[in-house]
Design a protein around this nucleic acid. Structure first.
Lengths: 255, 255
DNA sequence: CTCTTTCGTTGATCAAGATCAGTTTCCCCG
DNA sequence: CGGGGAAACTGATCTTGATCAACGAAAGAG
C-alpha cells in the first residue's frame, strides 16, 4: 500500500538544504504564485526579509518531504508542483488528508512532530522555513501572521467539508465532489477546468475518498458510461456534464 | 433527523445580546476556563479591554446559536456547557463536525456565511464577539491573534485525525476512539475520566462517527458484553478496560 | 399519576462497497 | 520494437454496516 520513495528524508536533508544556488534569488520561483501563497499581502521589502530565512528546493516526484512523527521543525510552501499529505495506521490503512498545489502551505501542527507524511506527486519546488524563524517573522510582520491564520482557517473549512464527504456521501457522490474540487482548483490556478489532470494514482484517490481502488475505478467507468465524464487516459478527466456532476456531488441527483 | 430547536435565532438575537446584566462583570464566568480559552495568554488589562466588546449569553439546551449559511458576524467562546457543530445535506444527511466544550471557540470561517450550524447540547454560557471588533483587538494584542491561530491549528489537526477515523476505521474502532477522546477531554477539564458523561444523543454520536444510531447502539452493547465498557445509563460510560479501548482505537486489537 | 412521545435497544434482512481473483493497458527500459 | 512490471480495469463473491421493523424504557405534559 505505501511504497517507499526513491530517496529518504535523510538524503534529502543532507543533499540540498543550504545549497548556495538555491538561496540566491529572492523568491524568483514564487512570483507566479505570489497572489496565493502565504507570502502574499507582504510588501516588497518584507518579502526580501522573508527570503533571507527561506530555503528553496527542487524535489523529484514520489519524494518524502517529511514523515508522520518526524520532529516538526519546518513549514513549507509549494512554488510549483503537487504534494499529498497522509496518515497511516499501524496495519497499513492510509488516509490522505489533502492534495496540495502551488501556493499551498503545509507543516503546521502541534509541537513534537508532524502529524502526517508529506510526499510529492510530481517534481516539485518547495520553499522551506524553520518554525523558529517564521515565528520571528510573524512577530515583525503582522500581515504575515494574518495571512497564515486565514489560510489555516481555509484549510479547516476544507477539512470540515471533507468530513461530510467521508462520513455521509456515497461513492458516486465522493468521486463527483472530488472531480469538481480538482477542476475548480485547476481553474483557479489558471489551468483548463475541463480536461482536468489527475497527478495522483487511483490508490491515492481511493485513500483520499475513503474508498478502495476498485470502487474508484468502477465509479469512473460508470460515470463515463453515463456520459457525465470522459476518460481520454487514466491521468485526465473531461467534465462532459458538469451540472450532472454538481447535482451528484450535493446528493441532489435523480438517478 | 434534524429537529428544530425550541427557540430560533431571531429570538435569541432580540432577546439578550446587549442585555445590561450580562455585560457587566469582566469575564467573571470565564475565570474557570481562562487557561484554555482563546483569551488565555492575555494580561489583566488586555482582558479588561476585550471584555468591553464581548457579549455574554446563557442559552438553554438544544438551542441554535447560528445556522449554516447565516451571515458570519460573530465568533463565540464557550464559558460553560457544550455545543455541537454540524453540516446538513439537502436530503437531511448530517455530519457532526465537532463537539465543543468549555474554552472552545467557534464561528471562524470564510466571509459570507457560517459553514456549519452550531447548537447547544446542554444549557450553555457563551461569550460572543463581532468579527470586526475581534479583528481590531487582534491588531492591538498580537498574543490574542497568536492564541487564536494556535487554537485553529489544533482544530485542524483534530479534523485531520477525524478524517482518518471517518475514512478508514471500523465501527468498533470509531466508537473506541470517540470514547477515549471524550474521556481525555473530560480529564483535561478536571472532570472524572472514567464514568464519562455523554451529553449528546445516540443520533449525534452516529452523525459524528459516520454511522447509524443502530450501529452505535449495537457497538456499545457489544463492548459492554466484552467487559470493555460499562453502561450505567444511556448518558454515561465507564471505561472498564481502557487499554483494550486504546488498542481498538488504533486498530491494534486482536479480536 | 397516567398518557404520550421520544430515545435507545434489539432482531431480521438488505445492499453498498470491500475483497478476491483475474485480465488488460500502459509505460518504462533494454 | 518487444518484453517486463506496475497500474488500471473488470467480474464474482463476501461482509460490514445500513435499513426496516418492533419493542422497552425513560422523560415530559397534562
Amino acid at each position: 500500500m505505501s511504497v517507499m520513495p526513491p530517496l529518504d528524508f535523510d538524503d534529502h536533508k543532507t543533499d540540498r538544504p543550504d545549497a548556495p544556488d538555491l538561496s540566491a534569488p529572492p523568491c524568483r520561483n514564487c512570483d507566479v504564485v505570489r497572489e496565493l501563497a502565504f507570502c502574499a499581502d507582504l510588501t516588497h521589502d518584507e518579502i526580501r526579509r522573508l527570503a533571507t530565512v527561506r530555503c528553496h528546493a527542487q524535489l523529484p516526484a514520489a519524494f518524502s518531504v517529511f514523515r508522520e512523527g518526524d520532529p516538526a521543525d519546518h513549514v513549507y510552501s509549494i512554488s510549483t508542483g503537487a504534494v499529498k499529505l497522509y496518515k497511516l495506521m499501524s496495519d497499513g490503512r492510509r488516509q490522505i488528508i489533502g492534495f496540495l498545489f502551488s501556493g499551498d502551505m503545509f507543516g503546521l501542527g502541534l509541537d513534537g512532530g508532524y502529524c502526517y507524511t508529506a510526499e510529492t506527486l510530481v517534481p516539485t519546488q518547495l520553499c522551506r522555513f524553520t518554525h523558529r524563524k517564521l515565528d520571528t517573522m510573524m512577530d515583525e510582520f503582522p500581515r504575515l501572521e494574518r495571512k497564515m491564520f486565514t489560510m489555516t482557517v481555509k484549510d479547516l473549512v476544507a477539512a470540515q467539508e471533507q468530513m461530510l464527504l467521508l462520513g455521509r456521501k456515497t461513492a458516486r457522490e465522493k468521486v463527483a465532489t472530488f472531480l469538481l474540487k480538482l477542476s475548480r482548483r485547476a481553474a483557479q490556478q489558471g489551468q483548463p477546468a475541463s480536461p482536468v489532470a489527475l497527478p495522483m494514482s487511483r490508490a491515492d484517490i481511493a485513500d483520499y475518498l475513503g474508498l478502495t481502488i476498485e470502487t474508484v475505478s468502477r465509479t469512473f467507468t460508470q460515470l463515463k458510461r453515463e456520459n457525465i465524464i470522459g476518460l481520454p487516459d487514466a491521468g485526465h478527466v473531461v467534465l462532459t456534464d458538469e451540472s450532472a456532476l454538481r447535482e451528484l456531488a450535493e446528493g441532489t441527483a435523480s438517478g
